[in-house]
Simulated assay, not measured.
Amino acid sequence: MKVPSSYDPQRRRRSKKEPLSTRQRAMAVIVFVVVVFLCMRQVYAVLGPQEFRRIFGLRQDSSVSELEKLHDPKISTERAQRMLEHHLQSKYWSKKQLRDQMCVYRDGNRFDCKDVDLALNNTEVDWKEHALYSAEQYLAHRPLSKARLYEELISEVGGGFTAEEGAYAVENVDADWKQNALEAAKEIRQESSFSDEAMIKRLTNPDLEAFTEEEARWALANLGKS
């Protein structure tokens, strides 16, 4: 058989892939380690130190401490931003209430208040609308007067809204204050037998129900009709 003149018996052996050199293997290992490190740091930033340790079974003095030293403030702020957006999707908060929620400890972990403040400042939120929705929630559970609802909204242990936000909410919430006074009067009547004047005083007491005189008298006049 005639062999082509271009045939080279050594060609096939030379075309085989040569093994990686020591330098190439070292570079591959370095790239792999860097990629793993960056991925782990991103996971750490999202989960936080406590959850990271729990999932990966790390001790306080383990490699997670090195991650804490390399903790990127930008990543920390982004994590706070994501958590803030999550909270805003699940509930109607005041700015103060949300800040307090994110700054306090949770399972040994918390957000730095500086990161929370940055996240709050970078997020557009209509706090007045949040106050309005919160007012609706209050009224869905209790027949409050306008004044009492306002106090609940701006209370530091209640809604935590500003005076302006609270005023906006009570002025725009869909509420029948006279009907609320009537419902409150019914609850009071079930608790104790009040005279008409005692009922009026109870309903209009600024430290108790805080209805107006007109609302209280309308409620009393209609108390026996329903």
Rank of each mutant, 00 (worst) to 15 (best):
H141M: 09
H130C: 12
E78N: 03
S155Q: 08
I75Y: 14
I75H: 13
F111L: 01
N122R: 15
P143F: 05
A140Q: 09
D117P: 02
E152I: 05
R79K: 10
H141R: 14
R148K: 15
E78K: 08
R148N: 09
N122S: 15
A131P: 07
K96F: 11
D72C: 06
A131M: 08
R82H: 11
R79Q: 01
L98S: 07
S90I: 06
S155N: 15
N109S: 15
L98H: 09
Q137M: 11
D72Y: 01
K128Y: 06
L132P: 09
N121M: 13
S155F: 10
A140P: 03
H141G: 10
D126K: 06
K146R: 15
T123A: 08
F111H: 11
K91E: 13
K114F: 04
V104N: 02
E129V: 04
Q137P: 01
S155M: 09
H87M: 10
G108T: 11
D72H: 08
R148Q: 12
A135V: 04
R106N: 12
C103F: 01
N122L: 13
H71K: 12
R82N: 08
G108A: 12
R99P: 02
L153F: 07
I154L: 07
E78I: 05
Q101S: 15
K146Q: 13
H87K: 12
A119Q: 01
K128F: 06
F111R: 00
L98E: 00
K91R: 14
S155I: 04
S90Y: 09
H141W: 05
A147S: 12
Q89L: 13
C103K: 08
C113W: 05
D112M: 02
Q101M: 13
D126Q: 08
K96I: 04
L144V: 09
R79D: 01
R79L: 00
R110V: 00
E151K: 15
Q81I: 03
E152V: 03
H86T: 11
Y150P: 01
L139R: 08
I154R: 13
S94D: 03
L88M: 02
A140F: 04
Q81F: 12
K95R: 15
V116K: 00
L144I: 06
D115T: 00
L84Q: 01
Q97I: 02
H87N: 09
R142T: 13
L132K: 13
D126M: 07
K114G: 05
Y105P: 00
E85R: 15
E129C: 02
L153V: 10
K95M: 14
S94T: 05
H141L: 09
D72S: 12
V125F: 07
Y133K: 14
F111C: 00
L84T: 05
